[in-house]
Amino acid sequence: MKKQFIVIGLGRFGSTICKELHHLGHEVLAIDSNKENVAKMSKHASHVIVANAIDEETLKSIGIRNFDHAIVAIGDNIQPSILCTLILKEMGIKKVWVKAHNAQHHKVLEKVGADRIINPEYEMGIRIANQLDSDKIIDYIELSNEYSIIELVATNKVSEKTIRELDIRDRYGCTLLGIKHDTDLNLSPSSDDTVYQDDVLIVMGKNQDLKKFEEKGL
């Protein structure tokens, strides 16, 4: 379903989001105070505007209220990011996602009502660290402080065993969401499906349970 997005701030992070959303077929309004940044996005957005994103009257004049989703990716100066987020929420934008630069910035964004706060460096650092921690882990997504989703490579230990035989839920308290076999993805596998060496298991659970499964189950 086609959606309408505003992307404010067209540095590396914002421009990447803008390009991908546009590529996925959504309508994207790209805004930045820097003319060069805006010019670079002219072919990767539905509309591009050079504007001051902390000027409420300017935002009103370009029809910001017609959009349900906004991504605030303003540069290293956190004050404009906070002010822009506050203005967008006061104008009734339903979903405002904001890039945070540090923990203090994150706390302030929570106070002013950001719907989701993104910490790219922190989140990527967590994922990379977990991949480095184990040769079995291909990817890692943190859902909360307690729960995560990980992708694990199946070893010879579990090869040619069915999901019923592995009994991942009862033994380790984890949920098997899917199995990747070569280019095929089996979502919600049945108890009779078989795991083979080098398959990728997509597993969700508490962090300590996932660690137990990784160390003892594979």
Rank of each mutant, 00 (worst) to 15 (best):
P189F: 11
G25L: 06
L86G: 04
H69E: 14
S33M: 08
I71F: 15
L10E: 05
I179T: 13
D55P: 06
N130Q: 14
N156G: 05
S159F: 07
L21I: 05
I87L: 12
I93G: 06
V195E: 04
K216C: 01
S190H: 14
V195M: 10
K99Y: 08
C84K: 02
H26V: 05
G173H: 08
S15T: 07
L29S: 08
I17L: 09
K35T: 14
T85H: 01
Y196C: 02
K107F: 12
T162N: 01
S134A: 07
S148T: 09
T16I: 03
K94F: 03
E123V: 02
I163Y: 10
I202M: 08
A114P: 09
K107Y: 14
F67H: 14
L88V: 03
S134C: 05
E121A: 09
M91T: 06
L88G: 04
V7R: 00
N186E: 03
L177D: 08
L109A: 02
A39S: 14
Q4D: 11
I149S: 01
E151I: 13
N37A: 10
K35H: 11
V38S: 07
I163V: 15
F13W: 04
K3N: 11
G14D: 01
R171L: 02
I17S: 03
E110R: 06
N102Q: 01
L24E: 14
C18Y: 05
D55L: 08
T183I: 11
I179G: 08
G125H: 02
K99L: 06
R12T: 12
R65M: 13
I202F: 14
D55G: 02
F67W: 09
D209S: 12
E160S: 14
K136C: 00
I118Y: 03
R116W: 07
E142A: 13
S61D: 14
H105N: 03
R116L: 06
K95R: 09
D76N: 13
V72A: 05
T162P: 07
Q208V: 10
E90L: 04
A53K: 03
L152K: 03
I71S: 06
V98D: 04
I117F: 03
L24S: 10
E36W: 11
I82K: 04
I8K: 02
E146N: 15
Q4F: 07
